[in-house]
Amino acid sequence: MIKFENVSVLYPGAAEPALKDLSIHFNQGEFVCVLGKSGAGKSTFIRCINGLQPVSEGTVKWNDKSLAEMTPKENLEVRRKTGMIFQHFNLIPRMSVVQNILTGLFGYKKSYENLLGLFDSNERMSALEAIDQVELTVEPTRRVENLSGGQKQRVAIARALIQNPKVFLGDEPVASLDPGTAERIFHLLKETHIKRNLVSIINVHDVGLAKKFATRIIALKKGKLIFDGSPENFDEKVYAETYNQ
């Protein structure tokens, strides 16, 4: 479904590319965890999938069509079919839980409808259902800055769910959460993943979480793919290779 063909990314002014000649593909139903040290290229990799980060060389393909060759409309389609969650949640401050979740529909609606907040009753109902799905027990009208880290990430997941995504991307979604909350969030991601038969690709620092939840692990080092396999095969030797100098 998603294919990287010889992808490299070189940031302006950087001596070394953030991603080097990466070729990999992902299929429907896979729950992939991406491991690697800070600066290994994990975030760049995740951002290349939905085109937030343009590639310098190579191609990223969705269903055999290159992102670079897509029309703006097709690119928009890719983005709205991709739910993305971030380390710092990236919620809109001073807006409520339900308002933040409804912004997940921005890609589907006309500009004036977004501007005026014209959401029909079905859409509002979907936002409330998304709140239920992520087991968020706060008032939908509560401002997001008053929530805990775990609650904020649940709002971010609900925002992604309302997009009705085919692909779920996570850029260190549990890095700023305590271990217990991190595990609960991973549980939620896995459950959603199974229910909706998604492709989920998630950056994570915690190898334990990756081994517990992933169906496939990939490891990056200095922008290069050094491991691609099942969690069982991610052994101490691979761990050492991934995290040591």
Binding site: E77, R79, T103, F106, R159
Partner: peptide
């Protein structure tokens, strides 16, 4: 920049994303 990135990721038009973020 975080909320702006999130708005790009959901497929919002640039000006709408900037405004809301």
């Amino acid at each position: 920049k975080g909320p702006m990135e999130a708005m790009s990721a959901v497929g919002a038009k640039r000006w709408i994303g900037n405004l809301f973020a």
